[in-house]
Design a binder for these strands. Sequence first.
DNA 1: CGAACCTATTTCTTATACGTTATAAGACAT
DNA 2: ATGTCTTATAACGTATAAGAAATAGGTTCG
Lengths: 225, 225
Amino acid sequence: MPSSDPRPSVTPPMSKADYVYGVLAEEIRSARIPGGTALRAAAIARRLGVSVTPVREALRRLEKDRLISYEAHHGATVVDLGDDALEEFYGLRAVVEGLGARLAATRITPEELDWLRELHAAMARDAAGGRLDRLGEQSRHFHLRIADIGGPAFLGQHARAVHDSFPVPATASLWLDPGQVPHQIEAHEGILDALERGDGAAAERLMIEHVRRAGEHRRDNPPTG
Amino acid sequence: MPSSDPRPSVTPPMSKADYVYGVLAEEIRSARIPGGTALRAAAIARRLGVSVTPVREALRRLEKDRLISYEAHHGATVVDLGDDALEEFYGLRAVVEGLGARLAATRITPEELDWLRELHAAMARDAAGGRLDRLGEQSRHFHLRIADIGGPAFLGQHARAVHDSFPVPATASLWLDPGQVPHQIEAHEGILDALERGDGAAAERLMIEHVRRAGEHRRDNPPTG
DNA sequence: CGAACCTATTTCTTATACGTTATAAGACAT
DNA sequence: ATGTCTTATAACGTATAAGAAATAGGTTCG
């Protein structure tokens, strides 16, 4: 990955609520905590060595992320979404990130394009070298960066919200399938070319097809776990 | 509005956190609390007669709604979004609700279509009778219901999140402009016809055009506040 | 005169205690 | 024997208070 990621490398001291939120979000998104699991605030507080107050705040945030459902006086439960939701997830990602790509084509700067090209080259190197384990996370950065460029004020954050609101076990990543990786790399390259040409319509179409294809592959190849 | 709204008419006792959240969300979305305002938790707690604990939970939820921004040890600030965000907001709504309409065309039931037709008839009556003040809220139900029908498991909730994540002063509603109302009513009717025909492509196209047009009108007619 | 530092104040952040509600097991009446 | 009511328990919801961090104002040193 390029090193010019603008996020601060020295993170401010994390509050305990942020810490709890980060831990639980990662465990739920990676499906290490499976859907349907009941989350008891007191137990989480004991496990992470904090009181229940920051745990409650973390649970409220996860509820807004649609990763847990909350019922008054009953507790929190990790959401359990079926195949219908999976199809909607990829359909929504397609149109949202497609819009981001279309807008990005008209306002991307050479520096931003270089950053994406660098990231893409790193992915191509990893793919050629068989280092498939990093590709999923790098692809996430690729997609969300384009959405941020196309819609820095509003769209990018919503694209991130959509992207992070669906629990996907790591074993379900398209990028772990050696037969699929070349096609994905090629799709990314086509999108980059469209962005460089300033061809918003093509960028949108290619992004939509790319994400839809990922959804179809995910549907036909359920996670092994 | 039709009376067959499936939500329970007897609402469970609202928690204080829900109460605080509801009050603040309404005040921010209606722009009664303008963008850039600093929100102090203790002051809110005093004003609403609760302690800071439920206030903090409400603020965390509003942060996830992107109605406020939160900075550690500094406090919450009502978001202040510019014209760029406005354009992104309507663009995002267009593609998300367009996808909802496309999916809805293939799975809408006669009962659901009847409900929408009833709502539409009520809007047409109010429009003809000059009762423009209700149209904005009714239109919100119209759009979100279609999204819920098209994507009941996932898409509908995200459409709602997008719709509610942008502060729009009541004075900015398209539906208060008597010159625009007939066009909007006509657009809704065209969408309903496409849904009835099961023509997903047309429903998506019409919904996108409808929302985009609303965004353009909003851009050319800033709120009078 | 300006910049850096210290301190007082304000506000957020967390922990703890108490009240409230849901759930399930057991007793009682039918 | 079954259905309902009672009660015990466990979990959530809220208030309060103590602790931590950031900001502003004044002071001191260069």
